[in-house]
Design a protein around this nucleic acid. Structure first.
Length: 274
DNA sequence: ACTGCCACCTGCCGGC
DNA sequence: TGCCGGCAGGTGGCAG
């Protein structure tokens, strides 16, 4: 489900609920979701640890521990972390439970089981997870036109595919890729190397603008997150182009088209995007 | 090295 | 009502 803005929303939800809490017991009904180390080792190493806070790198959640270690979580398509009072009925597809010292429980629900946990010791941060290969944070200080231009240089692939490549820029997914290109007025199927300097510059600027606005709107209170059960983190109403095939473009009225790029659906306006 | 394609899973929706 | 194909916001691995 989530791209950078939604993961940031989850981070904001989890941080106050986990910070300072000690793990009193761990249950992993679906060991497969633990990528490293083994589920058994994770249980042993996590029990008794206290959470120092929750951070984020691209689409990875970083649950920091008091011993310098990190419980890393990637939600992939359908992962949903919740913190609920112990005794709350356990939902279908609950794959990992952390009992906490204040009587609440962290629960990880994931119907498709694509999501993964890694428990990393201090100094082990980038091993195993793939985080070492990530490009810059689009909302970080390094990102800008120059960085994007260098990332796209010499690539014949569609610019949309490049935006989805986490090693070039980290955190953009299929929906925001389309939204960014719509805002920038660039067709998703344009070969990356064919883009003019001004076009790259518009994409860089809109990457920041679109993601920043989305992060703001995805900032939910604990009650909102809990009430919606996390199910509708993103409000489809505010998407300008994604999923709107056949509907009139919000800028010019031309029907939005859909095309498959990099095995994913891409939506764009054939009139506004060049 | 790049690029394209499949696998990993379940649920949901629309068409017949 | 029920079955079936197609689709889903992500990524790792593999083959060419």
């Amino acid at each position: 489900m989530p791209e950078l803005p939604e993961v940031e929303g989850v981070r904001g939800y989890l941080d106050p609920l986990l910070r300072g809490r000690t793990v009193t017991a761990v249950d992993v009904p679906q060991p497969k979701i633990v990528a490293h180390p083994s589920a058994g080792e994770l249980v042993a190493a996590l029990t008794g640890r206290r959470f120092a806070g929750v951070g984020r790198r691209a689409k990875f959640l970083l649950m920091q521990l008091d011993n310098g270690g990190t419980l890393v979580l990637h939600l992939r398509m359908t992962g949903l972390p919740l913190v609920v009072p112990a005794g709350t009925p356990v939902e279908k597809h609950t794959h990992l439970i952390l009992r906490l010292d204040n009587g609440s429980e962290f629960r990880y629900i994931d119907p498709r089981r694509f999501g993964r946990f890694w428990l990393l010791a201090a100094g082990e941060e980038d091993a195993f997870t793939g985080m070492a290969k990530l490009g810059p944070e689009p909302l970080g200080p390094e990102f800008g036109s120059a960085v994007l231009s260098a990332a796209l240089a010499g690539r014949r692939t569609a610019v949309k595919a490049c935006l989805l490549d986490q090693s070039l820029v980290a955190g953009i997914g299929n929906i925001y890729g389309d939204e960014i290109l719509f805002a920038a007025g660039v067709r998703p199927d344009r070969p990356a190397a064919s883009l003019k300097k001004a076009e790259v510059s518009r994409i860089a600027r809109q990457t920041v603008a679109v993601l920043t606005a989305a992060v703001e709107k995805d900032r939910l209170t604990i009650d909102e997150y809990q009430a919606q059960h996390g199910a509708e983190l993103r409000d489809a109403e505010r998407l300008n182009v994604y999923g709107r095939e056949g509907e009139p473009c919000l800028k010019c009225g031309t029907p939005i088209e859909r095309q498959t790029i990099a095995q994913r659906s891409s939506y764009f306006c054939p009139h506004c995007q060049h």
